[in-house]
């Protein structure tokens, strides 16, 4: 996979969410992603950033434009130093939530993007990486 362009953003407060979404949109438009695919990725990014604020008091996001096998896409990597997730399988189940939310969080977010990867160690934070290709799929 080739990285063509990158940028990082600190997310520490709730007011950072809207500027962050705009930054993601900028990356999407740069590669000419269709509106529906843009909306899906930005919504997923919004969900993940909220998780980060809620469970880990914020963190850092790496935004990249990547290319693989003649496909172009946007890759987002969310890294936090929070408490981590002890049971990833449980967290990825539909309807599960430890916080007071609708419990759509992770599985719903996963459905919105083409590639989704979650790594976490209890006590050592969480890293979520998502990729959405220009044409989806």
């Amino acid at each position: 996979m080739i990285v063509m362009s990158k940028d990082t953003m600190e997310i520490v407060r709730e007011q950072d969410v809207v500027p962050f979404r705009n930054r993601v949109r900028e990356f999407c438009t740069r590669i000419g992603m269709s509106l529906v695919n843009q909306t899906k990725l930005i919504t997923a990014a919004s969900e993940l950033v909220r998780n980060m604020l809620k469970y880990a008091n914020g963190g850092e996001v790496l935004l990249e434009i990547v290319s693989q096998n003649a496909k172009t896409g946007v890759r987002l990597t969310f890294t936090d130093q929070g408490p981590g997730i002890s049971d990833i399988a449980l967290a990825m189940r539909d309807g599960f939530s430890t916080g007071r939310s609708l419990g759509l969080g992770l599985p719903g977010t996963k459905r919105l993007v083409n590639e989704f990867d979650l790594k976490s160690q209890p006590g050592q934070g969480t890293t979520v990486t998502v990729i959405h290709w220009k044409h989806g799929r």
Partner: peptide, 14 residues
């Protein structure tokens, strides 16, 4: 509601 938003919400399960 915009079409793209509706499609995304359904995919999200909302």
């Amino acid at each position: 509601m915009q079409p793209a938003v509706a499609i995304t919400l359904v995919e999200l399960g909302l």
